[in-house]
């Protein structure tokens, strides 16, 4: 089934809501790479991507039956992803306060081959300079979410989304130096 068609997606989500494991697996397969990209953009760390993706999809499986409008599944999934990443970043910040780890312990360099291009390096560097909220905004736009959907995900107005997006893009442009 092609979940890119909205009718097919709604049907797939309904099956997943009824506890159909094949449908749940199909949803994971359809969204795992997009969610991984979103998580990477948010956290800027490849070592936490799989762990966070697993948390996000487990939450999805456990909560999908409470989703009222299956047509809004994608927005709902990315809201889950965003909240999970924000929680992870908060925990990371708290750990830095309570544990006597230095920066070099926290920011372990990526293994060779993990970062394979100057373009990617430059984008990761630029994203790291932005606030997590702005990173989420840019990543959601990259995921093809509309301004209205983003405003719903972030719990803010469309006008605020547009203004913040404009600022975030300017900042990204400023810091992006390949």
């Amino acid at each position: 089934m092609d979940p890119s068609s909205s009718a097919a997606l709604v049907e797939l989500v309904r099956r997943a809501q009824r506890g159909d494991e094949a449908a749940q697996r199909e949803l994971i397969l359809a969204y795992q790479h997009r969610v991984a990209g979103f998580v990477f953009a948010m956290t800027n760390r490849s070592d936490v991507v799989e762990d966070l993706c697993q948390q996000i999809f487990i939450k999805m499986i456990r909560a999908v039956d409470r989703l009222q409008a299956p047509a809004q599944f994608e927005s709902w999934l990315f809201r889950l992803a965003r909240n999970t990443c924000i929680d992870q970043l908060r925990r990371q910040r708290l750990r830095r306060i309570f544990l006597p780890f230095a920066d070099e312990h926290e920011n372990i360099p990526e293994p060779p081959g993990a970062v394979d291009s100057e373009e990617l390096d430059a984008l990761r560097h630029a994203l790291a300079q932005l606030r997590p909220q702005d990173r989420a905004l840019l990543a959601l736009v990259q995921e093809g979410r509309s301004h209205a959907e983003i405003s719903e995900i972030l719990g803010t107005s469309v006008a605020a989304v547009k203004a913040r997006l404009h600022r975030a893009r300017e900042q990204l442009r400023e810091h992006y130096q390949p």
């Binding site: 990477f40 697993q54 373009e119 992006y176």
Partner: peptide, 30 residues
């Protein structure tokens, strides 16, 4: 804010972070 291929590379790098059998592991954990 940056060229589209950079985002494509970021998505590809993120996809590489998921080991094979990811959906099975998620379903088992759930």
């Amino acid at each position: 804010g940056c060229p589209a291929p950079a985002w494509d590379r970021l998505r590809a790098a993120a996809a590489d972070c998921l080991r094979p059998g990811f959906p099975d592991r998620v379903l088992a954990a759930a």
